[in-house]
């Protein structure tokens, strides 16, 4: 079983060596007490012991917070501890959603929230389309008879592994006033552009950079989807003299569609939650031109002078609702894909 996965596997084992010693020591030390526990509660109850640590961490850091989040969202004030917070009912939600005209954020009481919402909608729309489009194109090209396919696949995948801070700094350096991009522009006789100081350019670049950083991941999934399409279908099409475009439309696309849908929703879920790269690259600026919804929640709760935890919690529950709906759609699609 261990030797089946090829040479990557063998190298993987060497990396594990670093973890092996503490592991052996800890496991051996636990052997005796665990035997005692088993004698005490009986063999049938041992699975609870195995599941317990995981559930404890889940419970403490996911489930309990989930309930506290609801509590925060219906209480006001700036106190962190729930017992110090006065109950305000649905006021926080009312405050967030109160607008004279929902289509123009400036008429809203909490205009930063709405600007965040509209920025996010704009960002998500273009980023997901660009990312899925480019990933599909790249995957289709990589699926052709290409020399050094593994190399090219890795090239597109490499940025996925980089940290968002690194990604943002790489591009900040390129896009700055005296950066290499402006050097190219001036070499062709253009004027320098302050890419991150102009609202439209800043929005363009956060879409560009996040696409750059993540498209390799979706390319990989789509490529796996493409490679699972039986080759004899293509052979049959070729024998019939079907054109390449028609083959793509009639064979590739329909069979890739389930994977496409999963990728689409997955990209959507990730895109709605974008924060890190944008935070480092533009800081939400200029002004609030690139402030996305997660950034709004972070600022409201942690970065402003007055920590408005209630408002942030209410906003995060609204965000969570959207994500929940998207995830349900994804699971539906996922299970349908499996049934085929």
């Amino acid at each position: 079983m261990k030797r089946s996965a090829g040479d990557g596997e063998l190298r993987g084992n060497r990396a594990e060596g670093l973890l092996r010693l503490p592991w052996e020591v800890a496991m051996r030390a636990l052997e005796y007490p665990m035997r005692g526990v088993q004698r005490l509660i009986g063999q049938g109850r041992m699975p609870y012991v195995f599941v317990l640590p995981n559930l404890l961490i889940f419970g403490t850091f996911v489930v309990v917070p989930l309930f506290i989040n609801f509590y925060y969202s219906v209480t006001g004030g700036t106190a962190l501890f729930p017992e110090d917070r006065p109950f305000v009912g649905a006021d926080q939600y009312g405050y967030l959603l109160d607008c004279e005209n929902h289509l123009s954020p400036f008429t809203c009481r909490e205009d930063r929230f709405w600007r965040g919402v509209y920025n996010t909608i704009f960002f998500v729309t273009f980023q997901v389309v660009a990312m899925v489009g480019l990933s599909l194109l790249t995957a289709v090209i990589l699926n052709r008879r290409i020399v050094a396919r593994g190399f090219f696949r890795s090239v597109f995948f490499y940025p996925v592994l980089l940290s968002p801070v690194v990604v943002a700094l790489i591009w900040k350096w390129i896009l700055q006033r005296d950066g290499v991009l402006n050097a190219v522009i001036t070499a062709f006789g253009g004027d320098r552009v302050l890419f991150l100081a102009e609202p439209q350019w800043a929005m363009f670049w956060i879409i560009f950079v996040s696409t750059w950083a993540h498209m390799g991941f979706y390319t990989l999934i789509l490529l796996a989807g493409l490679q699972s399409i039986p080759a004899d279908l293509y052979e049959a099409a070729e024998m019939d003299g079907t054109s390449r475009w028609r083959t793509f439309r009639r064979i590739t696309m329909p069979l890739l569609w389930p994977t496409m849908l999963v990728v689409l929703v997955l990209a959507l879920i990730k895109s709605v939650q974008t924060f890190d790269e944008v935070f480092v690259l533009t800081g939400g600026g200029p002004g609030t031109a690139t402030q996305l919804i997660v950034h709004y929640i972070y600022e409201t709760a942690f970065a402003t002078q007055v920590h408005n935890f209630g408002l942030a919690a209410a906003a995060s529950i609204l965000l969570g609702t959207v994500l929940f709906i998207l995830t349900m759609i994804q699971m539906r699609l996922g299970s349908r894909g499996e049934r085929r």
Binding site: P65, N69, Q273, A301, S316, L319, G320
Partner: peptide, 17 residues
């Protein structure tokens, strides 16, 4: 269920915990 709850949604209460 917990798969669906990213840190972005519960960061305020996790901070409290």
């Amino acid at each position: 269920g917990t798969l669906m709850i990213p840190i972005t949604v519960i960061m305020v209460p996790v901070y409290l915990v």
